Amino acid sequence: MAKGNNLLILILTIGVFGIINTEMGVIGILPSIAEHFHVSVSKAGLLVSFFALAVAVSGPTMPLLFSGINRKKVMLLVLGVFLLGNIVSIFTSSFTLALIARVVPAFFHPIYCSLAFTAAAASVRKEEVPKAVSKVFIGVSAGMVVGVPIVSFIASAVSIEMAMAFFALVNAIVLIATILFVPSIPVKERLSYGSQVRVLQKSMTWLSIATVILLNSAVFGVYSYLAEYLKSVTNMSANSISLTLVLFGGANIIGNVIAGKLLTNNANKSVLAFPFALGIVYIIFFLAGQFTMPMAIITVIWGILAGIGGNINQYWIISAASEAPDFANGLFLTSANLGTTLGSAVGGLFISGMGTQYVVLVGILSLILSLMTILLRIYMSTPKQQLSR
């Protein structure tokens, strides 16, 4: 049984990697895509922004709509849609068709990711859930930070078509593995749409959503401009910046492993400590921004914390709405995307108004606000008998 669970989690992890890589991998080859389809780079960027918009819109709704269907059938449907979209992208010469082939699968993106977290959690004992989910999160991190350089390398070394074929290959492997090795996973207790949506009536759910938005804003409001920061403030070379970004990505994966243990042992203390730990990192980041070696070291520590933060975000929402796990995971995905959008926007304002060095302030401000929502949720969830002692 344990071997079967491990294989399922591995397939889910690779599946999530394939889905996230399809979303993020395009970022590294936008100039090549623009040249391939004879459009401007800004227009090619629609492949990224429209995908993200579709994910944000479908986050709460699509997992809810598919929550009553056999998990394996849903997995195969989503992987099939992604594989078909990737194949169309390889062979089409029309940018409009390529855009459609990207946006349609994007609406199914939250279904697979939400399902992966839910299925991984359901495959282990309750006390092992954070560790199982953290393994799936490795696929998220790898898709975000490992996929981009791999796809960029394939595009430059071979062709843009082969880079897109890499997306299709990963999804095809997971599709075949799901058919062969994943057993039928029927929904044991089908929840009505109304009973799932009712989690939004709880103040804890909204506090958790606010926390996730703020914590993701804290991480990605700064990370979105890390390359620019390292270039203009630290004066790193292009190669050094690339290496530092790779180090951040590797550290992010390590953070996922650590997060599973932290959330298993003492979840509330881990969540409460997170804003303080990341806040200290950002203060050092600001003070040592001009020095190459300290910045490289602090970026690695930051990457580990960012990996832990992703797991904290998912746990914080699912623990507030555990009675509707599919819908809760959809809320997590949408909240995380909103946080990234908010942080990037505010970070841009700080840069334009004060300079690149001060982008760290969006992280610190978001952390202060997140600490308030975390404390409020812990206070509301603590039994009154304990508070009166």
Rank of each mutant, 00 (worst) to 15 (best):
N5H: 11
L10W: 07
L12N: 08
I14N: 01
I20P: 00
H36D: 13
S40F: 03
S40D: 14
V41F: 03
S49M: 06
V57A: 09
V57F: 07
P60H: 04
F66L: 13
F66C: 08
K72Y: 01
K73N: 12
V74H: 02
L83K: 03
I87P: 00
F91D: 06
F95K: 10
T96S: 13
A101H: 07
V104L: 14
A106W: 06
F107V: 11
F108H: 03
P110C: 05
I111H: 02
Y112G: 02
C113G: 01
S114A: 12
A122F: 00
R125I: 12
K126L: 15
K126D: 13
E128W: 00
E128A: 13
K131C: 06
F137D: 06
I138K: 01
S141I: 13
M144F: 07
I173Y: 02
V174Q: 04
P186E: 10
Y193F: 14
V197F: 11
K202H: 10
S203C: 03
S208M: 05
A210F: 12
T211M: 13
V212A: 04
L214A: 11
L214F: 09
V222S: 06
Y223H: 11
E228C: 00
I241N: 00
V257I: 15
S270T: 15
P275Y: 09
F276A: 15
V281T: 15
F286S: 10
L287K: 11
Q290A: 15
Q290G: 02
Q290H: 13
F291I: 14
P294F: 05
T299H: 02
I304M: 12
I308K: 02
I308P: 01
A321I: 12
A328K: 07
L331T: 02
F332S: 03
I351E: 05
I351W: 04
S352C: 03
G355K: 07
T356G: 01
V362S: 06
I364D: 05
S366P: 07
L369W: 00
I374H: 01
L375C: 12
I378L: 15
R389G: 04
